[in-house]
Design a protein around this nucleic acid. Structure first.
Lengths: 336, 336
DNA sequence: GCGGATTATTGTAGCGCTACAAAACACAAA
DNA sequence: TTTGTGTTTTGTAGCGCTACAATAATCCGC
């Protein structure tokens, strides 16, 4: 007894027979169309379409050792922060004939699992967010040598990286509050197992304040999972430290929006009673009243560049490009 | 010259040699651990870990014709609406040893492309959102026979489906507004290429109003891509039809939040001047003031059930289960 | 009309893994 | 010791595709 699958399976072989050519010609039609004469190519494509043939990526991957699928690990889709990033990635791979697949990971352990899956799939490259990864995952990536690009990372990449300087952005935003005449500025950060793109902000915040001769003790750390709800909590905690707090720097626009909601409940005017700064330029930042002053991180660009780095690496050009700075800009709205 | 890849590639063969067993024993260790004696299994696992071996999914897929990867197509990650859905899917597959990969698709064409990719990958099953798909994609799915589950779909599934009754939910929400004493109720819908889970609502809305002896002409259609910004636009348009509008039914909580922002700008009190109802129970619905009265769709459940349907199908049990109703409930907050 | 260069097509030999059946082994009963 | 039963391990033969080299077909100038 043979091991043939259901005879209805459409394989390259069956397309080849139906089109009266060899399997290799079918293969070339899909992978290197220019190698096949137009007439032949059209015939093959027609037959393939009729039969509903879809090349078996697993077999192709196995035979060639190559893949046109890139895997990206995304921390969360809870908020819109990664929307533009993913859109940039999708658009970039689409124009190059690659495919993007996503895995969500809320923790480093989940990220490591996602990386294992992608490695098992033998993807062409892996895009990660941030520069903190499990040791096992790092070793696996090193050993297999898959191209890896980290996003939201600005220096000393594991392999390649694309991002902007969190420190520069923090400094600019803090300075903006100082220049606005605020003196009692509070900082909201995340605690727990959190990416360095958040933890890096606090030292810069402190330093900027101290250089301006201001106190930098108005600091509170909250749980990353809280979303909007973190705003009221953080404001409450900061008011315990200083009831006369006059400005607040939030880790995301979502937290900032939460703070604005709470200001509404307290009948505090923004920015007169309290100036509020966010981060990320989420959609809500421009829609809420007052609009949130925030950091716009060029996430779409980041996604595009991340994919370009991987694709250029696999196609052999720009082997040495390893770090791309996509910059940021401050969006000045009414909240600060 | 042979076609061997870099000799550093860790294959099942190399693990087998290092562990002093046959390749099949290594294979069994990973796929059917209970078939291998504990001592042998441990030795193989240790060696595999040392070598950093990750089974080549492509090869396994090719040889067995089976896959433990399930593909899901998500319309968008712009808002949090699919967060719980994806979380439910992830949690469900994790406990069964499967893997979930995602593709984003903002249009039917992109969905079709995503389906092609998944079919090319020979995934174990495909999860889609909604019941509208390109004809080519439908044919491809039929021909290949992959298990397909549609979510947010309540009847006549393509293959399997999990969802809740949009009509029931619309009726309940509309009735709530009527019972609240509102008589001049407006409806905001989406126009253009939009899933039936939105378009189905309008007829039910109309019917419910007419049964209560009310006018049902306060209707406006907006662009789905607008997000928060759609709220102000829709309110503006409805006020042109009826300046004394006293309630509004929004397609999502995002639009409802946009309406609330606009009410704030106009100094309209909610719900006295205008009652606002949303849909989806997004995070913002509970955090904004006033809280948004909305439909909670049990998305987490939906995700879990969707994966269960696929996994049960591939493992051969519950072949006949084809439609799961996960229900909904109304979350009553202050906005209506 | 013919060598030589170019273009188009085709066998061959695996890629790394698994289904299946056969074989080896362990151990209790006869 | 032999037989039978159950458990553990191992060859064999592909899965569907592609790299590579070889062959076949076509074209050009002289």
């Amino acid at each position: 007894m043979t091991k043939h699958r259901s005879d209805e399976t459409v394989t390259m072989q069956s397309v080849a027979v139906a089109a009266g050519v060899s399997p290799m010609t079918v293969s070339n039609t899909f992978r290197y169309p220019e190698r096949v004469q137009e007439e032949t190519r059209l015939r093959v494509l027609t037959i393939a379409a009729e039969l509903g043939y879809v090349p078996n990526h697993a077999a192709g991957n196995l035979a060639s050792g190559q893949s046109r699928v890139i895997g990206a690990v995304i921390p969360s889709i809870k908020n819109s922060s990664f929307y533009n990033y993913v859109r940039g990635m999708q658009d970039a791979v689409a124009t190059q004939g690659y495919q993007l697949i996503l895995k969500l990971a809320d923790s480093l352990a989940q990220e490591a699992a996602a990386i294992r899956t992608f490695v098992g799939l033998r993807v062409a490259g892996i895009a990660l967010v941030g520069d903190e990864h499990e040791q096992d995952a790092r070793m696996l990536l090193r050993k297999t040598g898959v191209p890896v690009v980290e996003s939201w990372v600005h220096e000393t990449p594991f392999d390649m990286a694309v991002g902007y300087s969190t420190a520069d952005a923090t400094r600019a935003l803090t300075q903006l509050l100082i220049d606005g005449g605020h003196r009692r500025i509070g900082f909201v950060g995340y605690d727990g197992d959190v990416s360095s793109r958040f933890t890096e902000r606090l030292p810069t915040f402190r330093q900027t304040l101290e250089q301006a001769g201001l106190e930098s003790n108005r600091i509170v750390l909250i749980d990353q999972a809280d979303g909007f709800g973190a705003g009221p909590k953080a404001l409450q905690a900061l008011c315990t430290i200083d009831p006369d707090l006059d400005a607040i720097l939030c880790p995301t626009d979502i937290v900032a929006a939460g703070v604005l909601f709470e200001c509404g409940r307290r009948s505090w005017t923004v920015p007169d009673r309290l100036a509020v700064a966010g981060w990320g330029d989420y959609e809500i930042a421009s829609e809420i009243t007052p609009g949130i002053t925030t950091i716009h991180p060029h996430a779409y660009d980041m996604g595009q560049q991340a994919m370009s780095l991987i694709i250029d690496r696999t196609t052999g050009k720009d082997q040495d490009k390893t770090l791309v700075d996509t910059g940021f800009h401050i969006v000045r709205r009414c909240s600060a």
